[in-house]
């Protein structure tokens, strides 16, 4: 099980949720289920903290919600992406890609900085 850094989790959960909502409207429990499926249960997060994130995104008008009665007879709050949310998702996706590529590049380049530090300490 992966314990993600709290700050990293907080900043990445928003685009992840937006991506899940890209295809169809969904409710909290289903979003968590999808997250669990995609990560094969490897992501540990207090499930209830998803809802404040959804509220924050709703306040920013990236998503909107309405209560619907499910087949079980219980009422559920469904969330869907707005056009503003779509734009935001594209923006965040490109930003994440940018960071991703940067991390990739830095990770794969010859380890010159730590190498030079090694020579200094050994000198």
């Amino acid at each position: 099980m992966k314990e993600l850094n709290k700050d990293l989790m907080a900043s990445s959960l928003a685009p992840i949720v937006l991506m899940i909502l890209r295809g169809r409207e969904s409710y909290g429990y289903e979003i968590i289920q999808e997250l669990r499926d995609k990560t094969k249960g490897q992501l540990s997060v207090a499930e209830g903290t998803l809802y404040p994130i959804l509220k924050k995104m709703e306040a920013k008008k990236w998503i909107e919600s309405n209560w619907k009665t499910a087949d079980t007879g219980r009422e559920r709050k469904y969330y869907m992406l707005t056009s503003e949310g779509k734009r935001e998702l594209e923006e965040q996706y490109s930003q994440w890609n940018f960071i991703n590529e940067l991390i990739d590049k830095l990770w794969n380049q010859p380890n010159s900085i730590s190498g030079s530090q090694l020579t200094i300490t050994s000198a």
Binding site: A46, G48, T49, P52, I53, A59
Partner: peptide, 17 residues
């Protein structure tokens, strides 16, 4: 347990409410 305890949830909800 998966939902989270009152301390964590209150902290997160208080930020948005």
């Amino acid at each position: 347990k998966r939902l989270g305890n009152e301390e964590v949830l209150t902290q997160e909800y208080a930020k948005v409410n």
